[in-house]
């Protein structure tokens, strides 16, 4: 590999170092949150939480079998988001990690609440937890995506 033995001056070096930061800021600004696809995550979460409505909590409880399929659909949505936006993040950042943790924790709580409602015979009330799962997941995945895009500026 050829090397430049002289190298740039201090001003040229400062100018060159500023270039990538400005480009990253422009890239981050150009990234639009793909809400329609993020709503797909919300739909998957709603599907999983809603599956609690079809169970029979107690001795005859059978775990709903949608978990693996929901995970597969989520992976397809991730692929579609990358294709739609043209960006595949190397790292989402800690704020996005917290948001995703919030999605998992929120859905687990809502699933447990749904089982409780079914145990009390309130099957119809699972609609509320299902809608909540959709809204919470869509919102938090949007927060995670925005955070990951914002982190590009400081990468």
């Amino acid at each position: 590999m050829e090397t430049n033995s002289h190298g740039p001056s201090r001003d040229e070096a400062l100018h060159a170092l500023a270039g990538p930061s400005a480009d990253r800021a422009r890239l981050a600004e150009g990234i639009r949150v793909p809400w329609s696809l993020l709503a797909g995550f919300g739909a998957v979460a709603a599907w999983w939480v809603g599956a609690a409505g079809g169970t029979a909590p107690g001795e005859d409880y059978d775990r709903p079998a949608v978990g693996g399929l929901a995970l597969a659909v989520a992976l397809v949505i991730i692929y579609l988001i990358q294709r739609e936006t043209g960006v595949r993040f190397a790292s989402m950042g800690w704020q996005a990690g917290m948001a995703v943790t919030g999605v998992v924790a929120g859905c687990l709580v809502l699933f447990s609440v749904s089982l409780g409602l079914v145990a009390f015979g309130l099957h119809w009330a699972v609609i509320a937890t299902t809608v909540l799962a959709f809204g919470l997941t869509t919102w938090l995945t949007g927060v995670a995506y925005r955070s990951a895009a914002r982190d590009l500026r400081h990468a």
Binding site: N4, D23, R88, A155
Partner: peptide, 29 residues
């Protein structure tokens, strides 16, 4: 630390600078 003539060109430095923090980018982006 070392200088590299391939990266030294301003536009190539900008290309590398944009690709560095991501896993991959689409050509159009």
């Amino acid at each position: 630390a070392h200088f590299d003539d391939v990266i030294h060109a301003p536009l190539r430095l900008r290309i590398c600078g944009l690709l560095r923090p991501v896993d991959r980018l689409d050509f159009a982006v």
